[in-house]
Amino acid sequence: MLIWNLAEYVAWALAAVLGAYIIIDWLRTDSRYSEEELTSSREGQLEAMTEQHEL
């Protein structure tokens, strides 16, 4: 049936668009921000402020 053949192409196209979106945004982000800024997340940063593990 035609509609299912079309659906296959539409699925490929959508997947390609979403993939392209991710890749373009990734490359743009990497070029706009410095590596230090991007990897500035530290484990336990919030933990130290919000969770007081004291009795």
Binding site: E8, Y9, A11, W12, L14, A15, L18, G19, Y21, I22, D25
Partner: peptide, 15 residues
């Protein structure tokens, strides 16, 4: 195509 689309869509959503 549907397998690829499912993974790409959810990856996009997560992104």
């Amino acid at each position: 195509p549907f397998i690829v689309l499912a993974i790409m869509f959810l990856a996009w959503l997560n992104y």
